[in-house]
Design a protein around this nucleic acid. Structure first.
Length: 214
DNA sequence: CCGGTGATGGACT
DNA sequence: GTCCATCACCGGA
């Protein structure tokens, strides 16, 4: 069984294959998680929202594991994290992409721009949109039956896991390879290293590392 | 398939 | 004022 009170980068690869379901308006949409990113405890990860300490926005991250930290970004997008670690640590795993396995019609109605099933949840903001997740669900418990959001762990842990640097994180935070994904899954978002635009800095990052490296 | 760019608002320095 | 844990759309190849 997955222990969510462990560090985020330990929990993150174990969430690959997990099923995240939302029941909004009485209808269920389920995504099988194919890509995640880990954000470490307060003070040790410059890429984490919690790095500089607790603020009103990040208060959920400092609470107990197994709750959803949902935040708003770029003026229009929501992203969903699973809080990990002990209370006060503020670890989190960002759910970056998934395959919609239930509620395809409803997911398409929420994501009109998606050209096919694979694009429904291919990316963190696309996934929240397909599942109808927004800021109202910030702080929701994920491990209780009958909740609006439910996270069901995979029956078997993934044996083959892709590893890379995190997508939108630059600076010192880019040094830790804490993006994990299921190889050969079409729903994994295309890899775009931080600061790739016009910069040669991120060019050399490895896209797929052996799982032995972590 | 690929890279470039505008949209858009809130958190934080 | 600056920086985003991003997406959709456009044009070029």
């Amino acid at each position: 069984m997955v222990d969510l009170t462990q560090a985020a980068h330990v929990v993150a690869p174990q969430l690959l294959g997990a099923l995240l379901s939302s029941r909004v308006g009485g209808q269920t949409v389920t995504a099988r998680i194919t890509e995640v990113e880990a954000y470490a405890a307060v003070g040790i990860d410059p890429g984490s929202h919690a790095f500089r300490g607790q603020t009103p926005r990040t208060s959920v991250m400092f609470g107990p594991a197994g709750h959803a930290y949902v935040y708003f970004t770029y003026g229009m997008h929501w992203c969903c994290n699973v809080v990990t670690g002990e209370v006060g640590e503020a670890g989190a795993v960002l759910i970056r992409a998934g395959e919609i396995t239930e509620g395809l019609a409803l997911a398409h109605s929420r994501r009109v721009a998606a050209r096919g099933d694979r694009e429904l949840a291919q990316g963190p903001a696309r996934l929240t949109q397909a599942l109808g997740i927004d800021g109202e669900l910030n702080g929701t418990a994920l491990l209780q039956e009958g909740g609006v959001l439910t996270l069901r762990m995979p029956e078997q842990a993934a044996t083959k896991v892709g590893v890379s640097a995190r997508t939108g994180v630059g600076g010192a935070g880019a040094l830790t390879p804490w993006r994990f994904f299921l190889p050969d899954e079409p729903t994994v978002s295309r890899y775009r290293p931080a600061k790739a635009r016009g910069s040669r800095l991120a060019k050399g990052y490895v896209q797929n590392l052996d799982s032995e490296l972590w």
